[in-house]
């Protein structure tokens, strides 16, 4: 079990490997879309890893990128249709970023680096763990952005009304895109401070 836990912290896809940053930042203004996004990526990553690993010995190496893209986009279309059917408002909020899971480098990176050379079961676990490691960062960033930016969590008011009456203001900067980058930068800093630098 222990060998699968790396992506959560030691080899975190966003903080350490700098993979899949694109979508990570755009959906984190609120907690809810961030959690949905994290789950979608976990599902896509896990199952495309599994399928690629099942057919790894039959894919001709020259066209493997196209095969991988097709399998990933198959899962992404499934997730997209599922979200549109059952969580329409969230799917509107995520807009193109669900589609962009296809080009999320975490997924392609794991397919190339892991699924092509490992058995199905470890590949599935690797996919799940990388998805969760990605989700962890998303949730942390979204937590701070929603709490400080709109005073809510999961759309519920957390900061008491009384505080606003004595002059507390939401930090509008937190909602804007650049703050997501700065928060991730700070997370890398804190992580580096604790674990020692690895460059």
């Amino acid at each position: 079990m222990k060998k699968y836990l790396g992506p959560l912290s030691k080899d975190n896809p966003i903080l350490v490997q700098t993979l899949g940053v694109c979508s990570a930042l755009a959906v984190t203004a609120q907690l809810k879309p961030a959690v949905v996004m994290a789950l979608s990526v976990t599902v896509v990553c896990a199952f495309s890893n599994l399928i690629i690993s099942l057919i790894r010995n039959t894919i001709p190496p020259r066209i493997r990128i196209i095969v991988q893209l097709l399998i990933v986009s198959f899962w992404v279309v499934l997730v997209d249709l599922f979200l549109q059917a059952y969580f329409y408002d969230i799917s509107k909020l995520l807009s193109v970023f669900v589609g962009l899971i296809i080009t999320n480098c975490i997924i392609m990176g794991r397919l190339e680096a892991f699924a092509l050379s490992h058995k199905p079961w470890p590949s599935l676990m690797d996919g799940v763990m990388n998805g969760l490691g990605y989700g962890l960062v998303l949730v942390i960033v979204a937590f701070f952005r929603e709490l400080l930016g709109s005073g809510t969590l999961w759309n519920y008011q957390v900061i008491p009304k009384a505080l606003y009456q004595i002059g507390y203001l939401n930090n509008g900067l937190m909602i804007l895109p650049p703050m997501a980058l700065i928060l991730v930068g700070i997370m890398i800093w804190i992580r580096g401070e604790r674990k020692g630098v690895k460059e």
């Binding site: 700098t18 890398i188 800093w189 992580r191």
Partner: peptide, 10 residues
Amino acid sequence: PLRGNGIAYI
């Protein structure tokens, strides 16, 4: 600890 990617994000 901020060198490399950390500062790039900021």
